[in-house]
Amino acid sequence: MNTLVNGALLGLAYSLIAVGMALILGVAKIFDLVYASYYTLAAYVAVMLIRWMGPNFPIWLSFIIAGTVAVAFSLATHKFLILPIRKQGTAVMVLTLAVAMVIQELLIFKEGSEPIYLPPMLKGAISILGVWVPSQKFLVAGISIGIMGSLWLFLSKTKLGLAIRVTAEQPEAMQLAGGNIQRICLSAALLGGMVAAIGGLFLAPIFPPHPYAWLDLLIIAFAVIVLGGLGNIWGCLPAGLILGISEVAVAINIPFGGIIKRSVGLLIIMLVLLFRPMGLLGVQGWEEEA
């Protein structure tokens, strides 16, 4: 039961980390390595705001401001850096890696390299089936499911959502229909940035961010995306669950599992890419350029 409950909650958190990146990857067909930095940036801005404005500053307002900053940064990165070289995949990866490292260094310069701590929105712990877990984890699980549901509604019920889906699945058709691919890619960046910011703000009390955290988050996101199928947003949910449950199983059932549990994600990436390069639930040709 411990493995299932804690694994599922961890898995939902992982899904939340990965889904925004999966969206950007699916639509724009690019590996945005800055993605995890939007996540850390949101948490850092919130912490700084709370510090500057004092403890009476409403936390929800700090979240809105921090989220807006992270989303604006995501949009700016895509508009001015990524989109101009979007079709050169390697260049995009190198560029976004450089941006992520610059952000890392700036955060170290400003805040030092130790983790920062955001207060949990839900304090205390809840027992579910005899397993006690921090209440904040349930909140994150709810938010993860909520975001998945909202994304599903948005992508299936709105015109922009339809355009994003068509761009992801049949980019030529969208181009032939006169769709503005760049604008659609920016919409995906906006959505991805929003999801990352929400993830950063709500996950920070559980996974305290630090300047180097982007790399860990990126590995988790890659593991989930690869497992769920490259370019397949919906695959993030089962993939996150599989990864979370596997990690917990390793942590508590294997001697010294606590040390090696984080290798599970990397192992999954290696195995899946070796035997099924498009991911477990992915489709052939997902990388076809938009």
């Binding site: 559980i206 917990v248 606590g258």
Partner: peptide, 20 residues
């Protein structure tokens, strides 16, 4: 008995074991 990585952040499962 347990060992953790230096940068571990989530101990819920291990703590559940300890409670048990």
């Amino acid at each position: 008995t347990g060992k953790i990585a230096r940068d571990s952040v989530d101990f819920s499962a291990e703590l559940t074991e300890m409670r048990t």
